Amino acid sequence: MQRVNMIMAESPGLITICLLGYLLSAECTVFLDHENANKILNRPKRYNSGKLEEFVQGNLERECMEEKCSFEEAREVFENTERTTEFWKQYVDGDQCESNPCLNGGSCKDDINSYECWCPFGFEGKNCELDVTCNIKNGRCEQFCKNSADNKVVCSCTEGYRLAENQKSCEPAVPFPCGRVSVSQTSKLTRAETVFPDVDYVNSTEAETILDNITQSTQSFNDFTRVVGGEDAKPGQFPWQVVLNGKVDAFCGGSIVNEKWIVTAAHCVETGVKITVVAGEHNIEETEHTEQKRNVIRIIPHHNYNAAINKYNHDIALLELDEPLVLNSYVTPICIADKEYTNIFLKFGSGYVSGWGRVFHKGRSALVLQYLRVPLVDRATCLRSTKFTIYNNMFCAGFHEGGRDSCQGDSGGPHVTEVEGTSFLTGIISWGEECAMKGKYGIYTKVSRYVNWIKEKTKLT
């Protein structure tokens, strides 16, 4: 034993070699072989497995989906700052455009905790909710729209109204504003409101030439003092309507412009014939205590009207009353817009006519005020429907199939267009061939041609 100890002390290297040989010859039971080890760690190889990531292109799944990435790591994937920024906006807080917040056709661009709407022409605001041009839906104005110097929408209202708090709607500024039905039992019968379409306001006024200088022999019209197929109006439903009495009662109609003036057809009036105007009328054979009678003290036909040349060209006249009318729910003026808007309103496509005229061709006159909704007829169809001249200051309205029309005794009465609950004068009943005849239409004086003249002559002093 002493000898062994001496050998170990003198030859430590020998001992180490012996131990190493023993270990190498022993069977290893701690580690699995290569094949079995792979069965336990069965993990798919990654895209760049075996390579240094710093030297390969980034992978979106590896960089940002398996674990949260930084902007720089995302930049490695896209290799483009702009594309990385677009991805980053949604990656950080989701897609803010998912709810489609942009209105009126706006395009949404996502941002971090926010979004941006790219608005089409005519709109602005956070969600493109603000109209900035009158060309689109009248700028959301209830009545009139004008573009300011910086191309912003400025709404306005006709006389007797003021802008509401929203700067879009119009509200009454006087007790009985024009064009409004205020009798409670008839307010439910107000005709369907007309909503502004998209309009090209630059070209809204037709490029028409008034044929002022045409000389033409007097034409022989049949029954051209021209509501057939209409309905009984309720008291106060058309408070701007008046009836004219002269040699015979209810020979023509008219509309209240203001307390002192009536507008009617020029062919209705004769110099030297006494005319009485009755406002607030409903049943011409009954006294309903809503009527107001006034005498006409002055007749002003349009300066281009000449019955000797043509009885229905420039067929418009103004009547001055001896005493002002007292405005109330049964006696209310009709609204008159400017030339541009009167023309736009007419193009809405349908209007209402009213009167006490004959209820059928050569038949009896109506006792109760009649009204009828009539569609506008395109000019080409209008011209083809008659052998008589249709001037540019006239328009056609009615039904091709016949059966409904204005008729004798309705002449001078109103053709009105309702705009968001307020009625505007767009025409004056003038003439036609018979009444409600198939293929024939009622012919009306186009008020847009005469609004400046009306307003100039009827100013209240």
Rank of each mutant, 00 (worst) to 15 (best):
C382G: 02
S148I: 09
S220H: 07
S448W: 02
E73K: 06
E281C: 10
Q237W: 09
A9R: 15
Y352I: 12
L367P: 15
L372P: 03
K347D: 06
R373W: 04
V331W: 00
N166Y: 02
P414G: 10
N48K: 10
F395M: 02
H302D: 02
T290Y: 09
G442N: 14
S49R: 06
V243K: 09
T417W: 01
E193P: 11
K89H: 10
H282A: 09
S156Y: 10
L189D: 13
F238M: 10
L41M: 10
C145V: 01
A149E: 11
V273S: 03
I297E: 03
Y441A: 09
T16G: 10
S156V: 06
R358T: 14
V359L: 13
T218S: 12
E82N: 08
Y341L: 08
V228N: 05
C435P: 03
T271C: 03
A397P: 01
V181H: 08
T190H: 13
V377A: 08
D131K: 08
K39E: 13
D322F: 00
A207Y: 12
S187G: 10
S255Q: 02
K126F: 11
R75V: 10
L244C: 02
V153P: 15
Q143C: 00
G421Y: 04
M394T: 05
T389A: 11
Y341P: 04
L24G: 03
A233V: 06
C335Q: 01
P172A: 09
I454L: 08
L327E: 03
E420Q: 09
I136V: 07
I284H: 06
K68T: 12
A366W: 10
L425T: 01
F251Y: 11
I284P: 07
V77E: 15
Y441Q: 03
N135T: 15
R404M: 04
R294E: 01
E288F: 05
R83A: 12
G272E: 02
K168P: 02
T190E: 10
H282I: 11
T225I: 10
E76L: 09
G439Y: 06
K438D: 15
E456V: 07
E35K: 08
V377E: 02
E340D: 11
D131A: 04
S411R: 10
N313F: 08
K446M: 07
S220N: 12
E124K: 04
L346M: 06
R404V: 09
G272A: 03
N48M: 12
I428V: 10
V242K: 00
D315P: 01
D33L: 09
R379A: 07
Q185W: 10
S365I: 13
R404F: 15
N138T: 08
N245A: 04
N328Y: 00
T186C: 04
H415L: 03
F71S: 12
I299H: 08
E208D: 14
D110E: 11
E27W: 03
R62E: 07
G442F: 05
T186Q: 12
F121L: 13
Q237Y: 10
A279N: 02
L24F: 09
I262F: 02
H361G: 08
K109Y: 05
C335F: 00
K339H: 09
V263I: 13
R46I: 12
L327Q: 03
N283D: 10
G179Q: 00
G349V: 02
L60A: 14
A9D: 04
A173D: 13
N258A: 04
W453R: 01
Y330Q: 06
T158R: 01
I15F: 05
T386I: 11
N313A: 13
E27K: 05
D111T: 07
F238D: 01
R358D: 13
C28P: 04
A307T: 10
Q90E: 06
L425C: 00
M8T: 13
I336D: 00
P197R: 09
R3H: 06
P172V: 06
I429N: 13
K68L: 06
I429M: 14
T81D: 12
L376Y: 07
N100K: 14
G50L: 09
S217G: 06
V154P: 04
E420I: 09
F78S: 13
W356A: 04
R358F: 11
G21H: 05
D249K: 02
R162D: 07
E320H: 02
N104S: 05
N313D: 08
F87L: 05
H267G: 04
F121E: 14
L189T: 14
I284Q: 07
D410S: 08
E323R: 04
I210S: 13
S184R: 09
L163E: 02
E159C: 03
F348D: 07
N258L: 01
T276I: 07
E159Y: 09
A192F: 07
L460R: 12
D93G: 15
H400C: 07
S156D: 11
E434G: 09
S107W: 05
V56T: 15
L32Q: 14
T264K: 00
E159W: 06
A250G: 14
L372S: 14
V56H: 11
E54T: 07
E116Q: 11
K188F: 13
L425F: 03
T287C: 07
G253A: 13
V183P: 11
F196D: 14
S11V: 14
R358N: 08
M8Y: 07
P172L: 04
G355S: 05
G402R: 14
F388N: 12
S148R: 07
Y341A: 11
K362S: 13
G229S: 11
F55P: 15
T85S: 06
C252H: 00
F87K: 14
Y391C: 15
E401Y: 08
K440D: 11
I316W: 01
E142H: 06
N100I: 04
V277I: 11
V296P: 02
P239Q: 01
F345N: 01
C141F: 00
G58E: 04
I112A: 15
D200P: 09
E418Q: 11
Y391V: 06
A192R: 06
E79D: 15
V277P: 01
I15V: 07
T186A: 10
G355H: 12
A207H: 13
A337D: 01
V273A: 03
F196A: 09
K347E: 09
A9I: 07
R294S: 01
G413E: 02
F71T: 13
K168R: 06
L19S: 02
N304W: 12
S49Q: 15
N113D: 11
E340M: 09
K440L: 03
C134V: 03
F123Y: 12
A9L: 14
G58F: 06
V77C: 15
H267D: 03
S182D: 05
I443Y: 06
S169P: 00
E116V: 14
K126L: 14
C102D: 00
Y450L: 01
V273G: 02
S11C: 12
E434F: 11
T158D: 03
T215P: 07
N283T: 10
A380K: 14
P239E: 00
V331S: 03
F424V: 01
G421H: 09
I256F: 01
I390R: 10
E67I: 06
D322I: 00
C117S: 02
N328C: 03
C134T: 03
D405E: 15
T290K: 05
I390P: 11
R62L: 09
N166F: 02
D322V: 01
E159I: 07
K387M: 11
H34M: 13
S255N: 03
K387T: 14
K311C: 03
I316R: 01
F123V: 05
V77N: 15
L346A: 04
L383K: 11
T209W: 09
E86H: 15
P12K: 14
G427A: 02
S148D: 08
E270A: 04
F55R: 15
M8A: 14
C102F: 00
L211F: 11
F388L: 13
Y341H: 06
T271V: 05
C97D: 02
A173N: 09
G246N: 03
G427M: 00
K260N: 06
C157V: 01
S217L: 06
V199L: 09
A149D: 09
E231F: 06
N166S: 04
V331F: 00
K293W: 11
V153A: 09
R384V: 09
C145A: 03
L319P: 01
K109P: 01
I390S: 12
A164C: 04
A164E: 06
R379C: 06
K387Y: 06
V56K: 05
E10S: 15
E73R: 06
V416E: 02
L60M: 10
A436M: 14
Q96G: 13
T218Q: 10
S385W: 12
A192K: 09
E61S: 10
